[in-house]
């Protein structure tokens, strides 16, 4: 950020650009830590370390919210992001058997194109933002603009309907996540071709990898295709359409397999 001398003279009567206040220095230092942690997050080759550096980034952002006197947002950030989102990400890394330690293929082949795009976007954005707001100052004195009282009053006086809509969205996300996990699990367990007409109609794409594994080891494997990664590229999305209804009516052990579900 390098404002020209004209901007300096217009703003110098109340604020000096070259004499930053204590809040600005603190914001700058925390911002450097945050940005550095974000850079490590997107460049490290150890997947678990990326999640842990993401904690540093999100925590640094919470401190930035506190410096901007938005305390309620800061605590929501700590609770939701650091508390639950990162834990969810760590669980996801664990459940997908992410390698502990260095994984050499963490970065894609188009890394340099991505770097070019990101640098161009950064240069453009910073130029536009600094050019637009170089004489603008946030007044942080007086009562806090983002105290819990102010946020709550505005949220429950002016934003009640979107707030209730948001709860409906959260409910939809909850149901959606459960349906997504349940469907894959039901497909994996009832894989030997069990099922009446209703269940075969529902399992469309996920039944493709289970259809081409032999049925003798189907009772022991909850996720058959996990154990043979060589066959993971094989099933095409157009494969299940012809053979998904095929195993259902001809399997003799169908009712007994269907019972425990």
């Amino acid at each position: 950020m390098s404002p020209t001398s004209a901007a300096l003279t217009t703003a110098a009567d109340t604020h000096g650009f070259l004499s930053p206040t204590g809040v600005e220095i603190a914001f700058l230092l925390v911002g450097l830590v945050t940005f550095g942690a974000a850079l490590v997050t997107v460049t490290t080759r150890q997947l678990v370390h990326a999640a842990l550096w993401l904690v540093a980034t999100l925590g640094g952002l919470a401190v930035e919210y506190l410096l901007l006197t938005a305390e309620f947002i800061a605590w929501v950030q700590v609770l939701i992001y650091v508390g639950s989102v990162v834990v969810l990400l760590l669980f996801g890394l664990m459940l997908t058997k992410a390698p502990i330690g260095r994984s050499p293929d963490a970065d894609s082949g188009n890394r340099w194109a991505a770097l070019t795009v990101a640098l161009a976007a950064a240069a453009t954005l910073i130029w536009v933002v600094v050019d637009a707001f170089r004489t603008t100052w946030i007044d942080l004195d007086g009562p806090a603009a983002g105290s819990t009282r102010a946020t709550g009053e505005s949220l429950f006086q002016n934003w009640v309907l979107p707030f209730e809509g948001l709860s409906v969205l959260l409910l939809a996300a909850l149901v959606g996540a459960i349906v997504l996990s349940r469907q894959a699990k039901a497909t994996a367990t009832e894989q030997p071709g069990a099922g009446a007409g209703t269940s075969t109609g529902r399992r469309t794409t996920p039944s493709a990898p289970s259809a081409n594994t032999p049925s003798d080891r189907s009772t022991t494997a909850p996720a058959p295709s996990v154990r043979e990664p060589s066959a993971t590229d094989a099933p095409a999305p157009d494969a299940p359409a012809p053979d998904a209804p095929a195993p259902a009516p001809t399997e003799p052990g169908a009712p007994s397999e269907k019972e425990p579900r």
């Binding site: 950020m1 930053p20 940005f35």
Partner: peptide
């Protein structure tokens, strides 16, 4: 506080993402 500080930090974080 200068408004450019949070704006520039936000732009940098966005481009990192």
């Amino acid at each position: 506080m200068h408004l450019a500080y949070p704006a520039v930090l936000s732009a940098l974080l966005f481009c990192t993402g």
